[in-house]
Amino acid sequence: MKADLIWPFLLIGLSTGGLYSLLGCGVVLAYRASGYLHIAHAGVAMVSAISYVILARHLPVGLALLVSLGIGAGIATALYRWVFARLETATMAAKVVVSVASGVGLQAVGGLLLINFGLLEGGPRSGTLFPESSRVTIFGASLTVQQFALPIVALGVYATMQYLLLRTDLGLALRASSQNPLSASLAGLPSKRITTLAWAGTGVLAALAGVLSVSVSSFLIPTYLFAETIRALAASLTGAFTNLTRTVIAAFVLGILEQELVGFETPWNAMRGAVSFALITLVAIFGLSRQLERSERAGAMS
């Protein structure tokens, strides 16, 4: 590839990586809360993003953002309360089946919204979170403000989550419940409430990813953000679904790698997703298979 393209693609890669990282944080939170591989995370993000686009037609963007975050939290909480919480003792396989199926259900909801609000025909869109017209140009890459903001928000979310987990009572309670549910509930921790709260958190994170990724030009479909969530799952795999820092690093590496591949010639640029994905999965699998087994056992217990 041409040397002068490295930097622009790096910047775009940071933005992509930021999105993966945001989604990855949600996946890790869900896994820590209930040992769930949260494939339906994509569905929550997609429905929230579509809701945002619809709401932004009538409401100020900020308010639309807040309402969509609430919608995301609501969906995730409902999923946990009505579906996932009933399968706590089920096998990992059963959990995955239900998680996948819930995702499909959300896709149906998303499709319904898209049809009813005429978004499939490219109906009127309005306001992204940041003005679409103003762009930031660094190292020869022209980014929208939103693209520019994504990695910053992602890092902010990461820092906030680390703070919450490590420095607050709530985070302490979540860590205690996930390490030893029996002792935690005997200590009087309201495990169910804490877990619900964590799930609401995953919903907020999903919605944030959805809203920040959606732009005037983005192509809204029921599988919106699905591929990205799979990338995020791959990133969280490197952290055995529990390690936030590793997940975020892997997410950024994945994003950058993918964008840099665009600069290569055919057929590599056409396979950028697959190649980088395969790479990171292999790293995760061969580097971490033992840790994975451990955390899966812990996950199955909680």
Partner: peptide
Amino acid sequence: CTFPALSVGESLRVAMW
């Protein structure tokens, strides 16, 4: 019955929830 990754202080703090 311990929380293996929590410190002694944190474990007590959980107990005092």
